[in-house]
Design a protein around this nucleic acid. Sequence first.
DNA 1: GCTCTGACGATTT
DNA 2: GAAATCGCCAGAG
Length: 106
Amino acid sequence: MAIKRKSEPFDELVYDLTRGVPSGLVTTYGAVARAIGRPGAARAVGRVLNKNPDLARVPCHRVVRSDGKVGGYVGGIRRKIRLLRGEGVPVNQNRISDFKSYLWQP
DNA sequence: GCTCTGACGATTT
DNA sequence: GAAATCGCCAGAG
């Protein structure tokens, strides 16, 4: 079975990408969408993360918008910001300072 | 198979 | 810089 691709649901790919984000860095929905081979599917990526079955398994709080805004989070945006700050990412009013410097690219 | 929704993106005003 | 508008993709009803 050397051939194996696209057999995995969109969700699995998104989770795997998000799982690869190191602590202290963040990525964007668009970057994830592009990494899985579906550029422009940023919306779909966000939808998948919202269905995230296990927050401890997938650090979805490290995924932010392309503008540097944190976006949203299950349980409250406030919670996401708190987590990011705890990892060393400076957040200002739902926005990340120099977020491009903390941006992690696959 | 169509319609609606959504943790988005980029552009324009 | 913020708000409004259009466009794109995937899942659920």
